[in-house]
Design a protein around this nucleic acid. Sequence first.
RNA 1: GUCCAUGUAGCUCAGUAGGAUAGAGCGCGGCCCUCCUAAGGCUGAGGUCGGUGGUUCGAUUCCGCCCAUGGACGCCA
Length: 536
Amino acid sequence: MKDKLKALLNESLIKNNMVKAIDDIIIETPKDNTFGDYATNIAMQIAKDSKSNPRDIANLIISNINDPVIIKIEIAGPGFINFYVKKDYLLDNINTVIKEDINYGKSAIGKGIKVNVEYVSANPTGTLHLGHARGASYGDNLTRLLSYSGYDVTREFYINDAGNQINNLTKSIEGRYRGLCGLEENMPQEGYHGKEIITIAESLYKEYGKDLTDEEVFRTSGLNYLLDQIKLDLKNFRVEFDLWSSEQSLYDNGSVDKMLALLKNNAYTYEQDGALWLQTTVYGDEKDRVLVKSDGTNTYLVPDIAYHLEKYGRGYDMLIDIFGADHHGYVPRLKAGIKIAGQDPDKLNVEILQMVRLVRNGEEVKMSKRTGNAVTINELVEDVGIDATRYFFAMRSLDTQMDFDLDLATKKTNDNPVYYVQYAYARICTIISDYLKEVKVLDSYTTIDSEYAYNLLSKVYEFKDVVEQSALKKAPHIITNYVYDLAGLFHTYYAHEKILTDNETSTMERINLIKAVAITIKNALNLIGVEAIEKM
RNA sequence: GUCCAUGUAGCUCAGUAGGAUAGAGCGCGGCCCUCCUAAGGCUGAGGUCGGUGGUUCGAUUCCGCCCAUGGACGCCA
C-alpha cells in the first residue's frame, strides 16, 4: 500500500514538474487515525526547496491523484497530506497470512548477500555468564532476522583456545589437581577459580590418581570440558552455530605466520624496545600497537587479524562482529590491521552491546548465591525460564546499559510481558480448538467492520515492514516491541468482540482473522527465540 | 585528560533518516467475570524528552558547549 501511494505521489510530482527522488517520498502511518491511514510530509519538503506555501503545493499534488483505493485525501496542519484508504487490502491480507503461514513476514531484501555473524566467542576458561547471555541472545536474534530477510547467514563462534589465558587455565587445573593430591595448589596469579575448574581437576584425579604430570593433558581435557559445557549451555539457550573456529588452528595451519610476514612486508611495521609494532595510527587508531612482544609471544591482535583475514578469504559480502562494550576500544586497531593487510575494513561491522546488570529488589545481583561466582547463563534460565530470559534480552536495544529485572522476569502469573504475548497466542489456540467444526478458507470477508478488528488487522499487515526495518537496522528489539503491541491489540479485540457466535459467517470470518494474528505472533516470537505456547 | 555510548513519567525502557496531542510495562487510584482463559479489558493521576546556545516554518530528534552516568584507554585477552 505504501508503495502504491508512493507511486501515485511520484506520478503527480512529475506532472507538476516537482522534481524529487522517489526515495525521498516518505509515507508514514500516523499514530492518530484521525489523520488518516497514511500520511506524507512531501509537500513541506518541496515547499522548503522552492520557498513556497506548503498547503498550496499539497493542493497541486493531490489534484493529480485519483485512484479507486483512495477514499479521501485531506490536507492538514502545516501541509501534511493524509490519505484515507479502502480497508479491503487488510481483509485480503488475512488469506495471504494463512497461505504463507510460517513464511509470512519473510522478505528478500537481503538479496542473498553472504553475511558472517560472529558472536559470543567466550574464552573457554569458564562457564558462560550474564554478559554472554546478552550477546548470545542478540546474535541469535540477529541471525534469525537476517536469514528471514533473505540474507545468506553463517553463524560463527571463535574459540580462543591459544594464548595466555589458556596457559593460566592449564595451570589453574593443575593447581586444583595438586590440591587434590595433597600438595600445595600454587594457583597462578591470573588463575581461574570457578567451581568448574575443580570439577575438571576431580575427574582427572579420578582417572589418573596422583600420577598425572603431562601439561598437555591438563590443557586439552580442560578445554574440551569447558567447550562442551559452553556448547551445551548455548544449546539450552536455543543458540546454535554453523561454525566453531579455533584460534589454535590458525597457528597450526600457518595462517598466523603468513599474516605476520605479510604485515612486515608492506612496511607498516617497525621494531622498538625489542618488540614488533604495527602502525595502526596510519588508519585512525590513537596509538600504534604491539604485535610481537619483547618476550617473543604474540599479542591477541595477531591471531585476530589472521582470523579476520581468513574470514575475508571465505568470500563473505559482510562480516558482523558482536562485541561487549569493554572491547570497544579494540575496534580501531583491528580495522587498521585489516586495512594494512589489504582488506576492506568497511565490510566489517562491529556491533557493540552495553553491559547488563541483574537487579533484584532494586539492588544489583553480582554473584550467584549458590557458587559465589558470576551468575551463569544456566542459573538465569533455571530461575527465570528460557522464554522469559530470551524475551527480556530481546526487549532492549543494544545501546542501553540494561537492568535485567529478576522480580518482573520471574513473575509467572502476572504483568510479565512475555506471558502477555504468549497468552494472546494461547487464547487464540483455545478458541480455534473450541470451534469444533472445520475451519474453512474464505473467498471474501463481509462482516468484519469494527475499529478493533481493523486496528488489529492493520498491525498484522505491518509485520513485513517491521521485519525489514529491524533487519536493516540490525535491531531485533523492534520485533519484540511489535509483537507486544500486536498482542495488546488482540486482547482489546477479544474483550470487545465475541469470536464464536451463532452467526456462522461471522464466526468463520473471525476465526480466520485470529488465525492470521496467531501466525503473525508465532513468526515474530520465533525471530527472538521465544516459543508460542498453545495452552497456558 | 582522551575516545565511545547513554541521559525521555517514581522505576525499567520504547520512540526520533526534524513534523500534527511524546508512548508502554511496573508501581499508585477507580471500574468490569451468570459471558470463547480476569495470565484479560476499560479508566485516572504522573513529563520544562539532562542543561544551554544554534540551524529550521517546525528540534525530544541535527550541530556546538556544559553537566551526569557507564565503558575503554596494557608488550591482557
